[in-house]
Design a protein around this nucleic acid. Structure first.
Length: 726
DNA sequence: TTATTAACTTAGGAGGATCGTT
DNA sequence: AACGATCCTCCTAAGTTAATAA
């Protein structure tokens, strides 16, 4: 069963509907703000279920007890949480107005939204979840397996192995690399290694061939120039006036700046004086580009442990109006300007601390080598912390990425066991265990995200697996000739719609019915579950296992399988690339990575089609020519006509190839209309699979990875050979 | 325990840069 | 060389997870 359940035809080809996803976002709007009301009951129920495992039939009794706790809790919570309460009151009012009785009834129902105990179903075999001790041994055999399984060349983050490697390297590596010594120096000079090849882009550093720091330590030396601030606001000249209600109003520079943010979002009017504008913009852009390059050179790099590493986002985010994604409650709020006084600088003690702009000082300078960031500040919309960190090509990011795929590969080794386990858990006596098992099944089969709870009113109403609500699924005992179909329809990360109809196993279906019993649409489907509980359980099944590892694992294994399946050995390179893109697409579909169809899509498709038609005509002509040339050759039989035949043949071949290429392009583009391949390529697919595939089939890596991607995956390009297996 | 927060990964869109064609 | 389509880079929002506080 391993893997193939993920990409049966129904899921990838037939059931996936992208077409109207984007348009339908609003459909979900109304539901927002209604669901949280029931959240608190969940906690209580959970609490309750611990104690009430024995009384089974006597539901009356349970009812009463619950009512009591409920009221008690309710009153104390009120003081705790003012925000939520305000909303809650509002909603309540509405309901009371509608019907006083209804409210009471509803509360009752909610109290019981999910009984702590599960009735035995006919098919139940009374299985109890094994105590932890029974699960733990999973870890053991794994480590031993590891040793056998690992392709010799590949290093992993496994502790055991790492230790061994370290010892080895310490012994024979010391002489080769004077670097170990340097590392501890207080003020490191750039490697002598590095200094020499000044011109030809200093030798690429193969950090993956070096020893790792112990867990927790991220670096020993770190120096940088601090952040680049957003350019200060330049007030508009006096003659530009602001009108409010038809009257001129004087604005403070700050207010004026904010006003321009708004103005910028009005539709730009590209009107008169094209040439003037064109020339202006051309020059202006050139100067901007030069400026950016200068900035990059000065601020875009840091020195971390003897190496000059590229910084990802060295510019502080400029002020502006906040644009959330989807139906965001805070859209349009002012995102304020970040000042040096907001900034925390992180660097090593022995480094030169970047100097703040004149007349200003940093909020704080700290020296914390347990973290990877260089600069941080607190943003004013959500109150969250923003960071300046290194580029994906850096050692610090690359190592982590590599490790991520190694964890996913460890999952590969025990995924069957885990699947058997959760299938067993579908029958558990404990509601919590059943919910956990069904949720995990979704995460595994459908590559859903974990789904943390979110604070209401702070963000758009989106969900993941654990936060699914009853209203997000529809159960069809039978649909289109299939049994036990679950129809999912919800907004996920970035308010991207997830819509899928999936046939599930009977037990899952029955469990879902059970979970939904006596619940309102806005109640949590998994009322006994959250990401914390789930991840804790996963941690017990395998060290380092969390919900998102399943996404990585299933994405990578799917790519590998699809490549195996789709690559035809004697196809040419463009066809091979199409196969790769198709494999990549299967993953993107699995992970629901969507994009808005390009604005010019229809038109460009038509253009391509007419190109194809034209090419076809050319080809027909060429074929005719060839035929007549052949006929001539038959009659004349001289060398000249033979040559003509040859050249005509070649022309036909060339055209055929060109036509093929165009047709491949058309297919590829059509299939890709609303699917974004980049996200999975960058974040979910073990790059070594791709590298191995390229090597095996002689496809240049540049055809698959662009420059940035090659930099990010340098480690994989260097270390994977053609028989690498994920 | 549960809630909060810090740190880090994952995400799609905008718009500039580049490519291939005419 | 100009043009239009596509690619790539940047941007920063929105997730996940583990650590920490209450």
């Amino acid at each position: 069963m391993s893997g193939d359940h993920l990409h049966n035809d129904s899921q990838i080809e037939a059931d996936f509907r992208l077409n109207d996803s984007h348009k339908h976002k609003d459909k979900h709007k109304d539901r927002e703000h209604r669901h949280k009301e029931h959240k608190k009951d969940k906690e209580k129920d959970r609490e309750k279920s611990k104690h009430s495992n024995s009384e089974h039939k006597d539901s009356e009794k349970k009812h009463k007890e619950k009512e009591k706790t409920k009221h008690k809790d309710g009153s104390s919570e009120k003081h705790k949480d003012k925000h939520k309460d305000r909303d809650k009151e509002k909603r309540k009012e509405e309901k009371v107005r509608a019907s006083g009785d209804a409210k009471i009834k509803k509360e009752k129902e909610n109290g019981f939204s999910s009984p702590p105990r599960i009735k035995d179903e006919p098919e139940d075999d009374g299985y109890f979840a094994p105590p932890k001790e029974d699960i733990k041994p999973l870890k053991r055999p794994r480590e031993e397996d590891d040793a056998d399984y690992k392709p010799k060349k590949i290093k992993t983050e496994d502790l055991k192995k790492e230790k061994k490697r370290k010892l080895e390297e310490e012994e024979d590596g010391k002489l080769k690399k004077p670097k170990n010594k340097d590392k501890d120096k207080k003020v490191p000079e750039p490697d002598s290694k590095k200094k020499k090849p000044k011109k030809e882009e200093e030798q690429k550093w193969k950090w993956w061939e070096e020893e790792r720091y112990p867990e927790g330590i991220k670096w020993k030396f770190l120096e940088h120039k601090g952040p680049v601030f957003a350019p200060p606001y330049e007030p508009l000249p006096e003659n530009v006036k602001f009108y409010y209600d038809g009257k001129v109003m004087k604005l403070s520079p700050k207010a004026e700046e904010v006003a321009t943010f708004f103005a910028k979002m009005l539709d730009h009017e590209y009107t008169t004086k094209e040439i003037f504008r064109k020339n202006f913009f051309k020059d202006w852009r050139k100067k901007i580009k030069e400026e950016n390059e200068k900035l990059l050179k000065e601020y875009g790099f840091c020195i971390m442990d003897n190496h000059r590493e590229r910084i990802a986002n060295f510019k502080i985010e400029p002020p502006g109006l906040f644009r959330g994604r989807g139906n965001h409650p805070k859209m349009g709020m002012l995102k304020r300007r970040i000042m040096p006084e907001d900034i925390i600088i992180n660097c090593s003690k022995d480094a030169k601390v970047p100097s703040p702009p004149t007349g200003h000082k940093w909020k704080e300078v700290r020296h914390d080598n347990k973290v990877t960031w260089l600069v941080s500040w607190t943003e004013n919309i959500q109150g969250s912390i923003k960071y300046i960190m290194l580029n994906p090509s850096s050692r610090i990011k690359g190592e982590k990425d590599w490790q991520k795929y190694e964890t996913a590969r460890r999952l590969k080794k025990c995924v069957d066991k885990i699947r058997n386990q959760y299938r067993e858990d579908w029958k558990s006596k404990e509601m919590k265990v059943r919910q956990r098992a069904v949720a995990l099944y979704f995460i595994d089969k459908l590559a859903l995200r974990a789904g943390n709870e979110k604070e209401e009113g702070e963000t758009a109403d989106t969900v993941g697996c654990c936060s699914l609500r009853v209203e997000h699924i529809n159960l069809h005992p039978e649909l289109d000739g299939q049994e036990y179909v679950v129809e999912f329809d919800f907004l996920g990360k970035d308010s991207i719609r997830y819509y899928n109809k999936v046939p599930v196993e009977k037990r899952v279906f029955k469990n879902l019915q059970l979970f939904m019993e006596n619940k309102q649409p806005e109640d949590d489907l998994f009322d006994r579950l959250n990401t914390g509980i789930l991840n804790k359980h996963l941690q017990d099944l395998m060290e380092g296992l969390t919900a998102k590892v399943f996404r990585t694992y299933n994405a990578s294994i799917t790519l590998q399988q699809q490549l195996k399946e789709l690559t035809a050995p004697d196809e040419n390179i463009p066809a091979k690339i199409l196969s790769y893109n198709r494999a990549n697409r299967a993953v993107a579909i699995l992970c629901n990575h969507q994009r808005a169809p390009p604005k010019t899509f229809e038109k460009s498709m038509m253009n391509l089609q007419s190109k194809i038609d034209a090419k076809k005509e050319q080809l027909a002509d060429a074929r005719r020519d060839l035929k007549s040339a052949k006929a001539d050759a038959k009659v004349l039989k001289d060398a000249k006509t033979k040559k003509v035949v040859e050249s005509k043949k070649k022309a036909v071949q060339r055209l055929e190839e060109q036509l093929m290429k165009l047709e491949v392009q058309a297919t590829d583009r059509e299939e890709n209309k609303q699917i974004a391949l980049g996200t999975s390529k960058l974040n979910y697919l073990d790059p070594r699979i791709t590298v191995a595939w390229c090597k095996k089939w002689g496809v240049p890596i540049e055809k698959i990875y662009n420059k940035t991607q090659r930099e990010k995956f340098a480690w994989a390009i260097d270390m994977a050979d053609e028989d690498y297996e994920f």
